[in-house]
Design a protein around this nucleic acid. Structure first.
Lengths: 256, 256
DNA sequence: CGCGTCCTTGACACCAGTCAAGCGTTGTGG
DNA sequence: CCACAACGCTTGACTGGTGTCAAGGACGCG
């Protein structure tokens, strides 16, 4: 389970490349000390392959997991075996820092691609928040953005059809990945399978396939070898009435 | 806007009848001082009639609103005018205590029935949390339960059909209302219209009507003059595979 | 080369949406 | 006291977005 390409990764997460730092700087400016403390908390990474459960529904809540690279998710299993993904964890994302307050997890955390993770214990989180007010503020901010995203997804499942729902998701992913420097222009890696996508959107894999084709036919997206490119971002935004307010991102790539 | 039957209400919220205190005691036991501090924060109530917006989507985040009586909700308006309710506020519920971190609200808060509300300013919240560790803990708990509920609703919209979705909602409401002493046995007031219910469940009012009839026909619920009675709770739970874990309630009516 | 996983396609069924009309209750004002 | 409007509830006929089932194709991996 230890990281194979460890050296490169560790070098990466210490500097400006650390997606956690990039993400939190959308909340408020961080001092050099803040950044150093965050980098220190990220020094023990591990790599997990795709499709692995990290925390099981019903388990007592474990340490906080942070994604440094790859794509993970939270999901719930319905009694009939259906799966609903309730959140995507992109680089820089972590599950609730105070999750340990609860008795048991209400959902499972799993990887959708090979992931580089960091596990941070509750005391370390608490120390970070106590000694670095900016970090405390940023953690709060991240938690509130998580919740706002949950509401946006809920509204989408309730009131959008499959096609706009999917388009909306791609708009969100592009922005979130750009915010942590994991997009290249208007394209980003999308390692999830169509079945995963179906479990995000509340559809079936068959219908996802058709919807995807429809979006491609209209050239709203390009999907090639698990990479999504959005040829005309404005057009896609207009198509699904995307409003990024809920993500609470500052001017992208701006920092501070 | 001031409370008309003010005296009675204020007397009520000071004692054990205060739904906020009853709710938070599901998180951890509260001392006499904790309870007194909470009661003090609730001393200025106001009454608002049904169907009024309290905080508008896009407004800068205002004070924290707490519901003492009645039913309110968070909703989002879709570009085509459709409404999706993303959360129900029952007695004892409040919107995120740290909402003021964000620039602007991503959703609207509105009443579904005549409501008794309390507005608490951010500094008061901060003081409460600083000087009463139990209250701080309980606020965290409440926020995490909110989020877990959001996930449960999301899973329902994605992976349950209309009938079980509705049944599941009624199971949740019964438990939440029992937890704050606003249910009578297995029945509770449900002031929302069928259109409101549709906006909660992601359905149309027409379909809600049919679904409701179906549940009544099978005697899973009784609905009479805006009051819902559940004749056989176990049967309803089984019907929709209800698992109350996400609500994180201690033994009901137990306290501590 | 053979197997597994994922993607693709077609035919058909059904849950839920749309449109439209009618009914009941409540509240209001002439 | 009745007329009338407003609102919420109910019903029917029809449509359509998605699900289901089933089969085959493409690709990667051992």
């Amino acid at each position: 389970m230890t990281d194979e390409n460890g050296a490169a990764t560790i070098a990466g997460v210490g500097g400006r490349g650390n997606p956690l730092i990039r993400k939190l700087e959308h909340a408020c400016p961080l001092s050099v000390e803040d950044r150093a403390a965050l980098a220190r908390a990220c020094n023990r990474t591990r790599s997990i392959e795709a499709g692995q459960d990290v925390v099981h529904q019903g388990d007592p809540p474990p340490n906080v997991h942070l994604v440094l690279d790859g794509m993970a998710c939270h999901y719930k299993l319905m009694p009939d075996g259906a799966r609903q993904i309730t959140g995507l964890l992109l680089p820089g994302d972590f599950c609730d820092p105070h999750i340990t307050i609860l008795d048991r997890a209400d959902h499972t955390t799993a990887t959708l691609s090979r992931c580089t993770l960091v596990e941070i214990s509750e005391p370390v989180i608490s120390d970070l928040m106590r000694e670095h007010p900016n970090i405390a503020h940023a953690f709060w901010w991240a938690m509130l953005v998580n919740e706002a995203t949950l509401r946006e997804w809920l509204a989408g499942l309730g009131r959008r059809d499959g096609k706009t729902r999917m388009a909306h998701l791609f708009c969100e992913l592009l922005l979130r990945l750009q915010a942590v420097g994991h997009a290249e222009g208007n394209s980003f890696a999308f390692p999830a399978t169509q079945t995963d996508l179906a479990d995000i959107l509340g559809l079936t894999n068959v219908h996802v396939n058709r919807t995807l084709q429809s979006l491609r036919r209209e050239e709203l997206i390009v999907l090639d070898r698990r990479r999504i490119t959005i040829p005309d971002v404005d057009r896609l935004h207009e198509f699904c009435s995307f409003d990024a307010t809920y993500l609470q991102l500052r001017d992208h790539n701006g920092g501070r």
